[in-house]
């Protein structure tokens, strides 16, 4: 859609198939991520949205094998990274980085900006000459908009926006192809949030980086992503381009979620679909639709078996019997 480096367009950088992460808890098995599959093209951004406990953060970490997935396969640049040894995986992660949510707790308070950004370069033995390493740190600080005079300051001397810039510089230090951004702007004020989002977009344009952007903020994800995946209780329930998802959300949960966004305007306010109740437990879930207890349209079928994620329109996937039935009816019609 946007003109990114032409030759690499449409090349899948990441292919995730049937990713699962279960946690053993006293009451049974907690299905944090349950059979999630998706593909991301190089240079694009996939937004993952959902509410607390839907498994979006666990998905991000499992992709980098920061927590060991229970099952599934992850192809990165054509390579199955589930098969890598931990030493190989460590090298692999030079290409796969993470930006954390909370810039207040994700930085070492005893390290200066320079030390923090330099650390991964040093550990990976990317640049052995310390002067060159220092130049690289300055270069990275410039990229993320940190003034050179801050080089010897500590995290506590800086505000949230600058701290998040350090987190970004650190993630960029390895020249990664792919970055998982886990709620990178949630802790920031709106005026600073906009600065950081613009910075991340610029970096993507300049370097062709692929992002996964995990957030609960729907207006931010709409602005930032090319494609959006909606998760509910460990399941991916809808995936489409950002345009399609916001123009025509198909899953009843997505519809309610989008309608709940508080829109900052006073005219033509959208009608709100209020959901009953709250998330059900992700522990030992029944093999039925996980949204069934809150859904206004649930039928017998939804209580019996679990709907699969099916492509109902080009590039638009949804896991809902209701939508599947409509889709089939639409195909049968002339």
């Amino acid at each position: 859609m946007h003109s990114k480096e032409g030759c690499e367009l449409n090349k899948a950088l990441l292919e995730v198939k049937n990713l699962k992460k279960y946690f053993k808890v006293p009451q049974g098995m907690l299905h944090a991520v349950d059979d999630v599959s998706f593909t991301i093209q190089q240079g694009r951004t996939l937004g993952i949205v959902g509410e607390s406990g839907c498994g979006k953060t666990t998905t991000g970490r499992a992709l980098l094998r920061l927590i060991a997935p229970t099952g599934g396969s992850i192809l990165f640049d054509g390579k199955d990274i589930m098969k890598l040894s931990s030493a190989q995986m460590r090298r692999q992660r030079q290409d796969m980085q993470l930006i954390f949510q909370d810039p207040f707790s994700s930085l070492n308070p005893r390290k200066t900006i320079a030390q923090t950004i330099e650390e991964p370069i040093r550990l990976a033995r990317l640049i052995s000459n310390s002067d060159e390493r220092f130049m690289r740190v300055l270069d990275l600080m410039d990229t993320v908009g940190l003034a050179e005079r801050l080089i010897n300051t500590y995290p506590h001397e800086l505000d949230g926006g600058r701290r998040q810039r350090i987190g970004i510089a650190r993630a960029l230090a390895m020249n990664p192809k792919f970055i998982v951004c886990d709620e990178p702007v949630s802790a920031l004020d709106v005026s600073i949030q906009a600065q950081i989002l613009n910075l991340m977009k610029k970096i993507q344009r300049d370097k062709g980086i692929t992002y996964i952007f995990i957030t609960h903020d729907l207006s931010v994800v709409n602005h930032f992503s090319d494609d959006i995946a909606v998760m509910y209780l460990g399941r991916l329930i809808e995936k489409a381009s950002a345009d399609d998802l916001f123009r025509k959300p198909l899953h009843p949960y997505t519809q309610a979620l989008l309608s709940a966004i508080p829109v900052p305007r006073i005219h033509n306010r959208p009608e709100r679909i209020l959901l009953r109740g709250e998330l059900t437990s992700p522990i030992n879930p029944e093999p039925v639709c996980r949204f069934v207890n809150r859904c206004n349209y649930a039928t017998e079928q939804c209580r019996k078996t679990e709907p699969a994620l099916i492509e109902v329109e080009p590039g638009h996937f949804v896991a809902c019997y209701l939508v599947h039935a409509e889709h089939r009816a639409g195909e049968a019609a002339p």
């Binding site: 005026s191 949030q193 729907l218 207006s219 950002a242």
Partner: peptide, 24 residues
């Protein structure tokens, strides 16, 4: 104005964010 310009526009996702420069 700066606060409004910093917010993503849900209707027009390609609209550029115009952050307020500097810090509080």
């Amino acid at each position: 104005k700066g606060l409004f310009d910093s917010l993503p526009n849900i209707e027009d996702r390609r609209a550029e964010l115009k952050p307020i420069k500097g810090l509080i």
